[in-house]
Nucleic acid binder design. Structure first.
Lengths: 158, 158
DNA sequence: GAAATTTGATTATGCGTTATATCCATGTTC
DNA sequence: GAACATGGATATAACGCATAATCAAATTTC
């Protein structure tokens, strides 16, 4: 087994029996760590990272978008998006065709291979969610989902 | 205002209206992002990072522990822990005294300044939690805390 | 319609976090 | 006392994320 198979909770907050355990935010982080570790593990089996995964999905869903629009939607800085797109193109998962109206821009689209992989990835993620959140009672699971969605409207950072 | 005052949700999953929104894990991540952004903002006003904060708290709570024990508890690699401890010592927040029984080891303890700062940080975090989770109904907040705690027992990554 | 400005994509680069390999000094085991 | 284990430190690499600057193609302005 390679070292990359380790997905323990290696976090600067992973401790027992201290004041941190009084914070909901701490438990939120731990929960995300657990989910993230499993998710990355699942995606790795498809040779995808969080960034390439979400990028591929978005391109598959919204055809003919240009790079900067997609980067903005994903909240990724444009320079960092270049390598992601290049990788997906190199692997034949998406195509970059010049926009005829604006020859600076690219139109990104998923290939049939890309669509197939996106489909596979979504199914794998659904299974992953079942595995993890299925450990909660059906009621708790629904509650959690409902409550978490409320955070979308919260301010972040001020 | 410096650029570091920006705490938007700049995340490779921050998109609207796509399949990702069907995943609870996605919302979990967004929620953590919101909480983390605010938390880092709060800690920054005390010149603390997540790592120095949790380290200081742990040292304040469990006196006379040695470095590697603390690092293990926090889930931080020993080499990376060195700089954190050095910073806390340099700022006069903790002391490093040689263990008489094992002259290789240090015993770490918080100074009175360290204890004071830890106290201040905890209070600031409590206020931060009030501000954020206080936006939920009291019932939802309690539910969320209860449900999140269940993840502690979940396997991570296989 | 030429000059100035803006915009899409890219390159180069830096910063912060985290992981690994190695090393030194001390302790322990046999 | 030789071999090995352990506490701590150093050096280094990889990765994620950010900014500044560049180039070409558009748009605006006079």
């Amino acid at each position: 087994m390679s070292a990359s198979d380790e997905h323990d909770c290696k976090v600067a907050l992973n401790t027992r029996a201290n004041v941190l355990h009084g914070f909901t935010g701490y438990h939120l982080r731990c929960a995300w760590q657990v989910v993230q570790a499993d998710l990355m593990h699942v995606l790795k089996s498809l040779d995808l990272r969080l960034a390439t995964y979400s990028t591929l999905l978005l391109i598959a869903e919204t055809p003919d978008q240009r790079q900067s629009t997609l980067a903005d939607t994903l909240g990724i800085e444009r320079p960092n998006f270049v390598a992601i797109v290049e990788e997906l193109e190199r692997r034949g998962l998406i195509t970059r065709t010049r926009d005829l109206d604006d020859r600076r821009a690219y139109c990104l689209n998923a290939t049939s291979e890309g669509l197939a992989l996106a489909d596979q990835a979504v199914k794998a993620c659904q299974a992953h969610e079942e595995k993890l959140f299925g450990q909660l009672s059906a009621e708790d699971r629904a509650q959690l989902d409902r409550i978490l969605r409320q955070f979308r409207t919260f301010e972040s950072g001020r």
